[in-house]
Amino acid sequence: MTQTAETQVLLPLTTPQEVDDFLKEYPLAAIFKAGTCHKTMQGFGVVETFLQKHDLPVGFIRVVDWRPASNHVAQLTGLTHHSPQFILFKDGQPQFEVNNWDITPEALTPVFEGHVPARTGTAQLNAQLNAQGETSGGLEPYRRLMQAYLDGQLSDWAFQDQYVTLFRDDASLRSQREFDLLSRLFGDPDAYHGGLHQLGAPQGRGDLQARVQELLQELG
Rank of each mutant, 00 (worst) to 15 (best):
S172F: 01
E214D: 08
L199M: 14
D190R: 15
G204C: 08
S172C: 03
E214N: 02
D180H: 05
F186D: 05
Q209M: 00
L215F: 08
R174P: 02
S172G: 00
A171K: 12
S183K: 15
A171M: 09
F179L: 14
D207N: 04
L196M: 13
L208R: 02
Q198I: 10
R205Q: 14
L199T: 03
L181I: 02
Q213H: 10
A201D: 07
A210C: 00
R184K: 12
R184I: 10
H197F: 14
L181S: 03
H193S: 12
E178C: 06
L182E: 05
H193F: 11
R211D: 12
A191C: 13
L215G: 01
Y192L: 09
G187H: 01
F186W: 04
Q213C: 01
Q176I: 04
R184M: 13
H197C: 14
A191S: 13
G187C: 06
L199D: 10
R205Y: 08
D188S: 09
E214I: 04
Q198A: 09
H197E: 15
Q203G: 01
Q203E: 14
S172L: 00
Y192R: 11
R174H: 07
S175W: 02
Q209R: 10
F186N: 09
S183C: 12
D190C: 12
D190L: 15
G204D: 01
V212K: 01
L185Y: 07
L196D: 13
Q213F: 00
